[in-house]
Design a protein around this nucleic acid. Structure first.
Lengths: 320, 320
DNA sequence: TGCAAAAATTGAAACGTTTCACGTGAAAAA
DNA sequence: TTTTTCACGTGAAACGTTTCAATTTTTGCA
């Protein structure tokens, strides 16, 4: 019933604790014969090393923990699967955990590194954990002057670029539809939007909120048109869903879609087939994931960190 | 840089190691004042107990590990979310991990219990782990004479029931379409199918394989009709997807769907709206999940184990 | 055969907790 | 005053490893 310990193995094999340990860890100083003997005994006794004890000594768990805000969800599926593969190759195990448990899990200090995908996790918790001396990669917000490595999906540059393009083409009035102000992704995108306008000495003609959802976009535009007769020339939506929701409404009230330029973000399937097809920005998620793991692995080996460069594509279709 | 240990706290608070430990764990024997002092120092030094050390001593991690075969996937989403909630209430943390890592993770012995959803995990690994003295719940196969608790989604009874119903109604030729022979769920369902036939002294007129997918069902029926002029009277598919794939093909070649009775399993959304609507069996997944957690929690407290009873509904629609 | 060098083995400390079993000292009871 | 009780603290062992430093054994060579 009781699980065999190294001591049991050592006794049974008539060697010292040290020898047993070295033998099982294939240390060269142990004679081939003894090593074999010890291993045999270990097998017979079904010996399995105790993780805590080992960790307590050598402080390397080869475990990476990932915080997510919810299980399932199509984004995670591919991302997690990819990260898992990559970590396996590099001899790390991956454990996934709800961000709500972060505090408790982190306090164990049983992990060699963490990647955070949960935007709702408290900043203070991560900050505290950053003192524990293992790499933390946070994909949900920006950290300055911290050991925490920020790797949000940066949308600033591509948004800047497309708005700039619109300005160059002569448009003058621009609106931005937020998803949620809690979202760092959103803030990034807004940053790009704002920068382009600032440089052209323009002010946003409207700021709306659509909660990242279809109906949110629908309602936002509906509300706007209640107060105004006309839409701004160009409307940037923080994601495609909202843009499509908005167009749904515009079509319903027979607003001429030619009169407004609409830009989304994400490049979801539907945007391509929608009528009119939606102009949008696509971020290369695979590239992002790759970078996350690479940078984590580098930090684990404390190599110099390479800069993350966000790859993206502007996909221009009918709406702009 | 170095993280404060209990020793540091004790020294700084001018008390012994023991006192520090007791104070932080709210032991009654320590005077209120000292307790407060120690806690203050601990806070100041940002002390966080070391998980491994604690675990090494007290052998209770309050961690449950869940093995899955892949992250994401709509089934998991709700199941995991539910299990997480329930475990939290009972003061356990939940970690999710790819079944491929089971061996390594289990050998740590750092977990108080496990739930397995990964059918591909090796039987020997679970068996070995069952010696480690923590409850294991396996939802993917049947264990006899083992400490491992089997809790597969048992489909045997409802399948038996519906096939029996068909026999009573006078049908004589039956086919079964497997998803995959590796699936214990599938085997369970087949068990019910076979039992009904056996009792009526009938033999299956066909056994096919459809890989649990739409196209698999499509291809299976297509292949069958290449060799035979007619389908059996009743075809049972191990899941709805395959049944619908098969009907897609039959519609395409203008086979009269009235000539064949089709039964699926799972009650997916589409089955209801498909034309003709699909007769199927629905297992109460929530009930299943509840039971899994309940039984795990009971085992953790080593209470007597209640028997799991699988709740299901036969949903008769147009195809049978 | 002797002796240094190399190879193999080992004792014991260390990791950071928890907790048993035993002090203290002071107040209460005798 | 002496004994008992009690509240509060503490020393040290234990958990199961790894690993340093020291010791023993074997080997190679003159």
């Amino acid at each position: 019933m009781k699980v065999a310990t190294l001591k049991d193995v050592a006794k049974e094999a008539h060697v010292s604790l040290a020898t047993a340990s070295y033998a099982l860890n294939d240390d060269e100083r142990i004679k081939e014969a003894t090593r074999k003997k010890v291993k045999e005994v270990a097998k017979r006794l079904k010996y399995v090393p105790n993780g805590s004890a080992r960790l307590l000594r050598q402080k390397q768990s080869h475990r990476i923990i990932i915080f997510v805000s919810s299980f399932g969800g199509p984004i995670y599926q591919e991302i997690l699967e990819y990260i898992y593969q990559k970590l396996q190759i590099n001899n790390y195990e991956m454990l996934v955990c709800n961000g709500k448990s972060a505090q408790s899990i982190l306090s164990e200090k049983n992990y060699d590194g963490i990647i955070n995908f949960d935007a709702t996790i408290k900043t203070s918790i991560l900050k505290e954990a950053s003192e524990y001396n293992f790499p933390i990669i946070d994909t949900t917000r920006n950290w300055e002057n911290s050991k925490i490595i920020s790797l949000p999906l940066r949308g600033k540059k591509p948004v800047y670029e497309i708005i700039n393009m619109a300005i160059k083409e002569g448009y003058k009035s621009f609106a931005y539809v937020h998803g949620s102000l809690d979202s760092y992704d959103d803030l990034h995108r807004y940053g790009g939007f704002k920068k382009a306008l600032d440089e052209a000495n323009l002010l946003p003609s409207a700021i709306m909120y659509g909660n990242f959802t279809n109906t949110g976009g629908y309602d936002a535009i509906k509300a706007y048109l209640k107060d105004h007769k006309e839409l701004p020339e160009v409307i940037f939506f923080a994601n495609d869903e909202m843009a499509i929701g908005a167009m749904d409404y515009l079509k319903k009230v027979n607003y001429d879609l030619k009169m407004v330029k609409i830009i989304g973000f994400d490049n979801i399937q539907l945007g391509k087939f929608y009528n009119p097809s939606l102009t949008t920005i696509e971020i290369d998620r695979n590239n992002w994931t790759t970078q996350i793991v690479n940078i984590l692995l580098q930090s684990l080996n404390s190599l110099a960190k390479e800069e993350y460069i966000c790859k993206y594509k502007i996909i221009r279709r009918e709406t702009f």
